[in-house]
Design a protein around this nucleic acid. Structure first.
Length: 463
DNA sequence: GCATGATCATGC
DNA sequence: GCATGATCATGC
């Protein structure tokens, strides 16, 4: 047994020792391990540089920095101190902001057992995130893994106001298992704690207790958007113009975040846009993309630039204008895809799957009463249902990829080909193009959710 | 009235 | 200059 240069029963001692990792690379850690021979070092460099050994950078820190055996893995890493070790990458965005590179995976969901514990604070997943030693390293695309730099180390406990939201997230996931709907779980169902797919492909299917339908294997995770916020605000202490809707965590003891938000918007249902525009002093018209965000902020009493909970939960606001007959005037657009990139994606790793499976939308719905009168009809939360995502949407995506591979840029899935999704131009003008596979250029296009599908989603939420 | 192609407007 | 949410315009 190697002597450990810290007290593994003390969280303070663990954190203090971990601070030695600051500004070191993973290669440095191996170089500084006194317990291995030069010969072993060469083998270790090769082993850990292999990107296929996923999760191994965490293993490297456990073995060669904390010097402990990783055989007994189901309990907390530092069991006596109740500390879980998490080694996780972050990136620097083009505007200089930091962003978690990935969601933080906590533990595989055991469908057959986990539903039995309805109290999140007593759950297995809470043990895995109650107190975490977060070690952030900077991911850089063109570097060898061992040369990634460790820059932030922090013992992190989930703040009280976040915990209330997470408790509710846990309940939502557990309820789906109890209702025999484990196969319909989606990361977008919840706010901070998610259930992400886990396993190489859609064939990693598992039994569930209250249905014979097999469900995709999933893990509890803290969502990418939440971890990005944690990094920027709780670890780097960036002070930014964010403001929370929930000013007192007690509010969430009796209702969900979504219900609280809707209760704040409800008093303005059916009000004329002209009236609301003046009431909240909004200089734009509805067609301006800033209008709806400003309107929501006004109703939610948020003064600062951005809404904190929306950033953490990856909630995006979408404006929908209904005609007098209730049909949305337009289909709903999403960011344009690059022809040369989409053809290299697998469905479960694709941009579209990532966007649709992790985003929750707040639909702000307007309706024309006559040609000149538009009212704020109502608001609703929505995320793409897993059953649509993994059937129809997946098929349209696959058809799109196939036709691009055949260089059929003018023959991408039309609205008549699917009840849910189609492909259409999304550019500044006809000269706004992306390169094609055959070395030419084609106008930028994106996936659109059909107006009729949006209509159906609005109607179903009214049941 | 719908499908489809095209473009506006803002912000970074 | 470009990304993106939102919307316009035309032809059948």
């Amino acid at each position: 047994m190697i002597k450990q240069p810290y007290d593994r029963t003390s969280k303070e001692s663990i954190e203090e020792y971990a601070m030695n990792l600051k500004e070191k690379t993973f290669r440095d850690v191996i170089l500084e391990d006194p317990n291995i021979t030069d010969e072993d070092r060469a083998i270790l460099f090769e082993y850990y540089n292999d990107y296929r050994t996923k999760g191994s950078l965490g293993q490297l820190i456990e073995k060669h920095f904390f010097f402990y055996d990783i055989n007994n893995n189901s309990e907390a890493d530092f069991n006596e101190a109740g500390v879980e070790l998490k080694v996780t990458p972050y990136m620097i965005k083009s505007n200089g902001d930091l962003k978690a590179k990935e969601r933080l995976v906590l533990t595989i969901i055991n469908y057959m057992k986990d539903y039995k514990e309805s109290d999140f604070l007593k759950s297995h997943v809470y043990e895995k995130c109650a107190l975490m030693l977060l070690i952030y390293y900077l991911y850089e695309p063109n570097k060898e893994r061992l040369d990634y730099l460790i820059n932030y180390i922090k013992l992190f406990q989930i703040p009280e106001e976040d915990l209330e939201i997470i408790k509710n997230d846990y309940k939502i996931i557990i309820e789906k298992i109890k209702n025999g709907k484990a196969e319909e779980i989606s990361e977008g169902d919840t706010n901070y704690l998610g259930a992400c797919t886990k396993g190489a492909n859609a064939n990693s299917l598992r039994d569930q207790p209250f249905s014979n339908v097999k469900a995709m294997q999933r893990a509890f995770c803290l969502k990418n958007s939440y971890m990005s916020y944690v990094l920027n605000h709780y670890i780097v202490n960036k002070t930014e113009d964010y403001e929370a809707i929930i000013k007192d965590a007690n509010i969430l003891k009796t209702q969900s975040l979504e219900n609280y938000i809707l209760s704040k918007l409800k008093p303005y249902y059916n009000q004329d846009i002209e009236f609301l525009k003046h009431k909240f002093d909004i200089p734009y018209t509805v067609s301006n993309k800033a209008f709806t965000y400003l309107l929501a902020k006004g109703m939610l009493n948020v003064v600062n630039e951005k809404i904190e909970e929306f950033e953490k939960a990856n909630i995006k606001i979408k404006a929908i204008r209904l005609r007098t007959d209730g049909m949305p005037k337009e289909s709903m657009s999403f960011p344009a895809f690059k022809y040369t990139e989409i053809v290299n994606e697998e469905w479960l790793d694709s941009e579209l799957y990532e966007t649709f499976s992790t985003t929750k939308y707040l639909f702000m719905i307007y309706q024309y009463i006559d040609d000149n009168t538009l009212i704020f009809k109502k608001a609703m939360f929505w995320n793409v249902p897993e059953k649509d995502l993994n059937s129809e949407i997946k098929n349209v995506w696959k058809t799109t990829v196939e036709r691009i591979k055949n260089n059929e840029y003018d023959n991408l899935p039309k609205i008549s080909e699917s009840p849910i999704l189609h492909v259409r131009p999304h550019a500044q003008n006809a000269n706004d193009t992306y390169p094609t596979l055959d070395g030419k250029q084609a106008i930028k296009k994106c996936f659109w959710l059909n107006a009729s599908y949006i209509k159906k989603q609005i109607e179903e939420s009214e049941d």
